[in-house]
């Protein structure tokens, strides 16, 4: 049997190296040792960008797994539950009300509004008719649209539409340089926290009654999950913008291959998410070279196609 983790790590590593060597400037990895200019391009632009993409992909994919466990629905992700738009709303409010506030304050506020948005989603779907599995993601996408409309309206009033567009439309990582991406490490840390609580999320996914029967209080696990999802979404939206579908399709694909033993699968989910976003980022940089297509746009196409395939390919091989 093929072990998924080493395979995914190998793929990620090759994408990582590829990403370092691609760009408007021709830079050779070997030359970096001797050539100061090449080293500068690598350390100040290529490496930060590549790390940002890897962290984004890994954190979003893990956040998606967590979201799917706490919602108990395979067809949701942080970008289809109003979380990212809520983060954008918080950021916009900070831009208008306290434009001089330091970055960490903005991130904190964005995380808090993202938390509020996800909580609203959870409250909403609890009131949905229980059997409507497919309507949970629909409700989430519509809720995202409603919050997005609020953001657009406020942005229009304050003439910030262009500014907001970079978060809510397709996210891109072309502007990422050293000093602009480091907060994403916090998102990575949140994903690791989720891994430590993997068992708890797995039990939560079995239902409140099972969790209570096993002596696990579902409420704090739910809160931890919402915090992980919100922090990851907020930091990603603030740093690189919306990257759709990563948190939705990656956990599904990994789940199809190796099941939902989260303790084992979360590292694979993280690696696969990082690899997928890296691959899309590389495609985005090559397709109209030397210009770039934002990675979020590529993910929008790739992700929705994968999602449709997942939707129409039955889970059961045969009975």
């Amino acid at each position: 049997m093929i072990r998924p983790l080493p395979v995914m790590l190998a793929i990620l590593l090759s994408l990582f190296v590829t990403s370092l060597t691609i760009g408007a400037a021709q830079v050779s990895l070997r030359a970096a040792g001797s050539d100061a200019w090449a080293a500068l391009v690598l350390m100040e632009s290529r490496l930060p960008r590549t790390l940002a993409v890897v962290l984004t992909g890994a954190a979003l994919a893990v956040a998606g797994t967590v979201m799917q466990q706490i919602v108990r629905n395979k067809f949701v992700g942080p970008d289809t539950t109003g979380t990212s738009e809520s983060a954008g709303l918080g950021l916009l409010l900070m831009t208008i009300l306290a434009p001089d506030s330091p970055v960490w304050v903005r991130m904190l506020v964005a995380s808090l509004t993202a938390l509020a948005g996800s909580a609203a989603f959870i409250l909403l779907i609890r009131r949905l008719p229980a059997r409507e599995v497919m309507l949970v993601p629909v409700a989430g996408i519509i809720l995202s649209g409603v919050i997005g409309a609020v953001v657009t309206f406020i942005a229009w009033r304050y003439d910030l539409v262009q500014y907001v567009g970079t978060w809510l439309a397709a996210g891109g990582s072309s502007g990422i340089i050293a000093g602009r991406y480091e907060t994403l490490w916090v998102a990575g840390a949140a994903a690791i926290a989720a891994w430590f609580a993997a068992d708890r999320f797995a039990i939560l996914g079995l239902g409140d009654n099972v969790a209570k029967g096993l002596g696990l209080d579902p409420a704090p696990v739910m809160r931890l999950g919402l915090m992980v999802v919100s922090v990851v979404s907020a930091l990603v939206v603030v740093t690189v913008g919306m990257i759709p579908f990563v948190g939705l399709v990656v956990p599904n694909i990994v789940s199809r291959i190796m099941g939902d033993d989260l303790r084992r699968s979360i590292p694979v989910v993280a690696t696969a998410g990082a690899a997928l976003v890296s691959a899309c980022d590389i495609i985005g940089r090559l397709v109209i070279y030397p210009y770039e297509v934002p990675v979020g746009l590529i993910m929008g196409i790739v992700g929705s196609v994968i999602f449709l395939i997942l939707l129409y390919r039955p889970t059961r091989p045969s009975t």
């Binding site: 629909v138 397709a170 759709p244 746009l297 929008g300 196409i301 929705s304 449709l308």
Partner: peptide
């Protein structure tokens, strides 16, 4: 069916921007 339509919408919009 609804979900498919919603996703198709996203796909069409992304492809259009692309």
């Amino acid at each position: 069916t609804i979900l498919t339509g919603v996703i198709l919408g996203i796909l069409f919009r992304s492809a259009d921007s692309f």
